[in-house]
Amino acid sequence: MKHYFEYQDSKSYKFWQVEIEANTLNVKYGKIGTAGQEKISSFDTPEKAQKEMEKLMSEKTKKGYVEKTDASAKKIARRIGVSYDEAEEGKTLLEKVTAFLETTQATEVESLVIAAWEEPHETSPQEALDLLIANPAKLPQLKELFVGDMDSEECEISWIIQADYTQLFTAFPALERLHIKGSTDLTLSTLPLKHEHLKALTIECGGLPNKIIETIVTAQLPNLEYLQLYIGVEDYGFDGKLDDLRPFMQKDLFPKLTHLGLVDSEIANEIATEIAQASVLEQLETLDLSMGTLSDDGGRALLDSDKIAGLKKLDLHYHYLSNDMIKEFKKMPILVDVTDQQDTEEEWRYPAVTE
């Protein structure tokens, strides 16, 4: 018996497969389109192998993997970045993007990742982004764009200088997924944001400016299914209040939205208390309030809500919940991730993504 699962978010596109034969389990996993890795385990009896398979499948489901009858096709992807050594030699992101656009592969690429550029704490990727915007005909298959895929050793997230994306939405009307890392000098759009095909939007940062929140809540994104916003902290750019986030909690702001993430927040308790009775829960499958300062105050509001039970998944990982409250969440009839408990005795509490 074989079971095949896939997981996709703004960063990942991977599979996990388990097959049982008598008392042997064969597990394969990796990026979609690759052969992946394989792990074979033997058990004393077929019953023990079956039990282990069910346990593993449950774990994957809790992490957001979805079982499918057929494997998805491989995406043609390209990652472009400037390493530290390349930057020292004077190479630039603009040069690399220019060279990429002259290749035949550019016309086939569906997913484009822009990694680090030269001195990202001082310079913007604007010139390279503008070059992409000026050449949509050279990227006819582009469906996904991630700008700023770098780790803390390359640049701390709150130091990443970002760009103005206003013209991107017109240049690429077929774009489905946009992921932006870093919010310093970020402009999502100076015009009313409209896009017919965008399905997923992620902004990952240490602090989300209110001007970005305002741009999103007034946007016309009729096909948006996935919205993941890192709220962050005031010291790194968050200058909004709970009132500014309330529009996200209203049903049909984005009629097809099934995943809402308001994560990495220092006002996680306020958000949880407010959203626990919000109408948006009627349309969501997943609510993500992870990586923030959520404690028992916000946790109690979620547990007492009669709307939370309609979700498929509630993600609260990285939190300050007590042991007793964690036990209560584990009893809920939906999937709840309450892993990565922080020290509840700490006087100072911080979201996961801060410096």
Rank of each mutant, 00 (worst) to 15 (best):
M57H: 06
K51M: 11
S58W: 03
D70T: 13
E89P: 09
V82R: 01
T45R: 08
Y65Q: 06
R79N: 12
G90L: 05
E88K: 14
D44K: 12
A87Y: 02
D44L: 10
V82Y: 00
S58R: 09
E54W: 07
E86C: 00
K60C: 03
E88D: 13
K48N: 14
A71D: 03
E47G: 03
E54R: 14
K55M: 10
K48V: 02
A71K: 03
L56A: 10
E52H: 07
K63Q: 15
T61M: 12
E89K: 11
T45S: 13
S72A: 10
E89T: 05
E86S: 09
F43P: 00
K55S: 10
S83M: 06
A87M: 00
K62V: 03
A73G: 06
I80T: 05
S72K: 10
E47K: 04
V82A: 09
A73F: 00
E59F: 07
E88G: 13
L56N: 14
E47H: 02
G90S: 08
K51V: 08
F43K: 02
D44R: 06
K60M: 14
I80W: 00
K63R: 11
A71E: 11
M53Y: 00
D70I: 10
V66W: 04
Y65F: 14
S83T: 15
A73I: 02
K60H: 10
